[in-house]
Each structure stands twice: as C-alpha cells, then as structure tokens.
C-alpha cells in the first residue's frame, strides 16, 4: 500500500497545509464534473500532480485495485433491471459518469500520502484545529500509527486461537462475540498502560512541534485549491457569456 517515502520531488517540498487545501479543492472540483471536458481536465490535472510527486499512475491503480474493481461494478448494478430486458443503459451511463469522477481524486490523495510525513500532517491538523482539541487530535493520530499494527496482530492472534480450537464450527454470533471481547480486552489493557505511560512522561498540553512555514511556492498551490473549490460556482456564469459547442 502507498505510504510516505522521503524524497526531493516538487510535491515533497510543499507545505502540508497547501497540499491538504489543494486536495480538498480538487475533490470539490472533480465531483462537480458534469461534462466530458471538465472530466478530462481533472484527469489531466491529476496527472500533473502525480508527475510532481514522481508517482506512476500504474502504481496508484495497482494500490487502489480493490476500490477500482468495486467502482467498475457500480454501473452494472445501476443498470440491472429485475426482469427482461435485464439491463437499462440510462441509469448505467449515469452511474458510469459518476464513477469516472473518482479515480483523479484517489490519485491526488495518493500523491499526498506518498509525499507527506505523518508529523507534518499532525502539525497541519493542530494548525487547522486550534486549542486543546487540535492537540489531542494531533497526538492521537501519531498514537494510532503506533498502535494500529499491534491491534491488528492482537486480532489475528485471537482469530488464529479460535481456529486452532475448531472455532470455525461455532456460530457467527459466538465467533463475533469472542473476537470482539478478546479484542476489546486487549485494547483496554493497552489503553491502561498507555494512560500510565503518558502520565509518567508528563503528557502536556504544550509540546514542541516541527515549525511549519509557508514558502513562496506554497501560495500558488493553496490558491489553486481555493480556485478549484470555487470552480463549480463560476462555471454557469462562464457558460452564459461564452457559448460552448
């Protein structure tokens, strides 16, 4: 799966706040796509973003293959009619157009994940959500990175133990309960130890974070994010003055 890799690409050099803003703006613009030209524009822009992160589109498609497979299935579901002729092209086309808006958004967020260290995202979250809530969200994100592999391992251990005792012959209710209880038990034990460890280390409201600084090259990216977010509002006005097609 995609994760952060250190590097020197143009995307690596940007401030995380500019990149987050661009991502959000891009998503708004991509989801507002209603014409083929607009759609092609978002694909072209996503291609530029991937190039700036030196990330291959094939790599991104491979990492999102499950998502893309589900997306490809949506038009089939939309067009299905119970009874002859079994398929209606109208809803299927509408769904295919809707689904086509998705891959560029995924590509842009893949570029973000590849080029932004977690500490930077944490600092950006704390800048975005000021005060104590932001502090807790920021620390929480880093702690989830730390504990997520441990809890997955815990749950897999529990599931292996259930299987080793012939548990797959029990009902789903019993298996679900066993997995949830043992998983929760280990979770709460870990949270007790974490709380103790945080207190022992004087967990404070005012820790030291990496200093974020907006440089000259960050402004155009942030501005592009705002412009993209506003683009769907401007389009009808443009359409009225410039006759298209």
């Amino acid at each position: 799966m995609l994760s952060y890799r250190p590097g020197t690409t143009p995307a690596h050099g940007l401030d995380p706040r500019a990149k987050l803003g661009f991502q959000a703006g891009f998503a708004v613009a991509a989801l507002a796509a209603s014409s083929a030209g607009w759609l092609l524009g978002t694909y072209a822009l996503a291609g530029l973003v991937l190039a700036s992160a030196r990330l291959s589109p094939i790599r991104v498609a491979r990492d999102y293959r499950v998502v893309l497979a589900v997306l490809a299935f949506a038009p089939v579901l939309a067009g299905f009619v119970p009874g002859p002729p079994w398929f209606d092209a109208g809803p299927a086309t509408r769904s295919a157009l809707a689904v086509a808006r998705v891959p560029p958004v995924l590509a842009v967020s893949a570029a973000y994940v590849r080029t932004t260290p977690v500490r930077d995202t944490r600092a950006a979250v704390q800048w975005l959500v000021p005060g104590r809530v932001g502090q807790l969200l920021g620390v929480g994100v880093s702690l989830v990175f730390r504990f997520f592999p441990l809890l997955v391992a815990d749950l897999r251990t529990v599931r292996a133990a259930i299987h080793a005792r012939g548990g797959q012959r029990r009902s789903v209710l019993v298996r679900g309960r066993l997995l949830a209880v043992r998983g929760l038990d280990r979770t709460l034990a870990r949270s007790d130890r974490l709380a103790l460890a945080l207190r022992a280390r004087c967990f404070a409201w005012n820790p030291t974070l990496p200093a974020l600084s907006f440089r000259r090259r960050d402004y155009p990216v942030a501005a592009a994010g705002v412009a993209l977010a506003c683009a769907p509002l401007v389009r009808p006005v443009v359409g009225t003055f410039i006759p298209v097609g």
């Binding site: 799966m1 995609l2 994760s3 987050l20 991502q23 959000a24 998503a27 989801l31 999102y64 499950v66 998502v67 589900v70 997306l71 808006r101 998705v102 958004v105 995924l106 590509a107 842009v108 967020s109 893949a110 973000y112 994940v113």
Partner: peptide
C-alpha cells in the same frame, strides 16, 4: 486503504 480520496469518494 488510506487517503482523503478514499474517505470522500473511494468505493
């Protein structure tokens, strides 16, 4: 899966 794109659109 991960990323803002997955939350906003994803599958």
């Amino acid at each position: 899966n991960a990323g803002l794109g997955y939350v906003l659109v994803g599958q």
